[in-house]
Design a protein around this nucleic acid. Structure first.
Lengths: 187, 187
DNA sequence: TTCGTCATGTAATGGGTTACATGATTAC
DNA sequence: GTAATCATGTAACCCATTACATGACGAA
């Protein structure tokens, strides 16, 4: 992860569903976004601290005791109304449409109204088409000067981008006709 | 780019071919690896400084003058024998096999002996298979709890990883029989 | 009793992004 | 004469990674 503050969005998104402590947050992050998103503690806890400082979440100490008193300590985080507003703002943001940002937003699409969903999908589509044009232009310009490995690299990048584009198109189609998908399930 | 010092390898790799100044280095980086690799000045120049400090490159001031004296200033970088050794070490390294590291190494495969190339390809293959297994395991475990968007996300991730895997297999095949490719061209 | 998991953090380090700052040359 | 490109850097800020440090609980 490179861009600043990528974690804020998914953390708030998970806390929207229910209160959680740090350790659980990390597990849920992996469950939702895949194993590549196992964030480190040194990344998660500072994020939580920043969110608390910004008033987006509140911390509550909790004592877990299965029987006797004085058990394991937990710090449970709860999202605030301000945090909810921040979440919606971040989610609707259309500035950055690279794979990381798009993935993060798609994971919380259910919290967006249909028109915002469509806007984001179309922004992602435009982003991918730009990338594709750049890739092709680049390949065309330097074709003679690059070796077979680099050529293979660029060809594969183009193919992968085209695949992403087809996927986004599918998502757009499904967004346009949400009933079709259900018809199949009922048939 | 996230991991520390990713730029060192491609910079040394480009300087292996010929001496270059910073501005040109940046352009060649984009030409070789695609437009997403347009690094920022604040990233490139510190890298060059670090390489110079480590003795991997030497700096030479150059005056460009098309006619009259005292023209534009350039700082030309040249790789040293130590730099060449560092480059070979980094290139043969098999520890990190994520997309970024693999891409960077593949771009300079021509500088590696066939057996090292094969070793790297097989390490990448193993990495992708691990990822794939993790993705599938994760999907299997949490299938019921995730919504259709997240499901689509994970399904697409799996498909993309499978595509990467097929690509690596192609590269391995071509590595095993380098003459076949030429036969087709001659036929 | 020891290992694995649960649980929470801090500190050091280092690199990337963005913005800032400057100036020459070329083409229109 | 002015905009675009060439050309080189610095500084501030922020964030992520890694390693470190601690300790309770459950199961074998």
């Amino acid at each position: 992860m490179k861009q600043p503050g990528v974690l804020e969005l998914p953390v708030l998104g998970l806390l929207k569903e229910r209160d959680m402590h740090g350790y659980e947050l990390r597990k849920q992050l992996g469950a939702m976004l895949g194993p590549l998103w196992q964030v480190s503690w040194g990344s998660l806890y500072p994020t939580l601290r920043r969110l608390a400082r910004a008033g987006a979440v509140t911390k509550t100490e909790q004592q877990v005791r299965p029987g006797r008193a004085g058990g394991r300590r937990r710090t449970v985080y709860r999202i605030t109304p301000l945090g909810e507003a921040m979440f919606q703002d971040m989610l609707g943001e259309t500035a950055a449409m690279d794979a990381e940002h798009f993935t993060l937003k798609l994971a919380f699409f259910r919290y967006l109204p249909p028109d915002t969903r469509m806007k984001l999908l179309e922004r992602r589509r435009a982003y991918l088409q730009d990338r594709l044009a750049e890739f092709r232009d680049n390949l065309h310009r330097y074709r003679e000067r690059i070796d077979s490995y680099t050529l293979s690299l660029q060809t594969h990048s183009i193919a992968a981008t085209e695949s992403d584009l087809r996927w986004v198109d599918e998502l757009i189609d499904q967004e346009r006709s949400p009933q079709e998908h259900r018809q199949k399930e009922n048939a």
